[in-house]
Amino acid sequence: MIIIVDALNKDRFGDLLDEMFKLRARVFGDRLGWEVEITNGREIDQFDRLDPAYVIGLDDEGHVVSCVRALQTTGPHMLSDVFQVLLDGEPPLRSATLWESTRFCVDTQRLCRDGNTMKAVSMATCELMIGSLEYARRSGISDIITVIDPVVNRVLKRSDNAPYDYVGSTKQMGKVPAMAALLDCTEERINRVRAFAGITHDVFANEDTVRDLLDARQLAFAAQLGESSEWMAAILSGSEEALPPVLPEDIQDYCRAQIETAQTEEEHAAALRLVAVLVRERVHPAMHRLVFQS
């Protein structure tokens, strides 16, 4: 399912944006080796501060699995400000009905978990393409210029969504080549991608439904932690003196490091579960003793 997050609703979906910036850091920084700035495990650049619109793909649990960013070409955008080299020194196209799309990516890691195949990746990719094209189309936009690498270019071609032309030429940007491709937002193109992926449903999710889903997930997460939360709080605050000496100091240090260096929500949850298990196994006997003593 697809959700559009822009300046008008980002106060409701800050958690989604945060997850998206982390996904972009993993894809563009770690996997593709683009020269992007990553702070605190999040890839955020100057264009993210210009109130762009994000088309974000979510899985059934409400996790971000794909995203792309859109800006108007009448104002500041990447091709006018940082990617001019792709245009061979020519001024960029500027039109009321042309949007620029950048930072197109899909979370192949998450989608291929649990024995899923590349089929899931392809579906998520197509859903994101359909979402972007339909969002642009209903906004009165006729064409999209998109900055991509040859890999995404191949993905577009294979999904019956081949660019109808390119502007400028392919150039090496840091470690990878990049190019500017043109896509029309016609119904014919949208229908082609839909037919390729076999997607007939409305790809857009209702904002309230998404919010409920995210809230429910957070509640479930909190409940899972419930029983060990006291120990967690004590461990995290570093006030080990307050803790009964149940976990050896080095184990406590190890747990704290695991929690602090967790990169994803899963890793974080796993680190907390580990503490819960250790505490249950080792503490309960100790607890009994404490209780007896008092």
Binding site: L93, D143, L182
Partner: peptide, 17 residues
């Protein structure tokens, strides 16, 4: 040697500029 659509998108941009 370019598509009709390419002509159109450049013409629109040129007009607006």
């Amino acid at each position: 040697g370019i598509s009709h659509r390419t002509v159109e998108v450049h013409l629109r941009s040129g007009r607006e500029k």
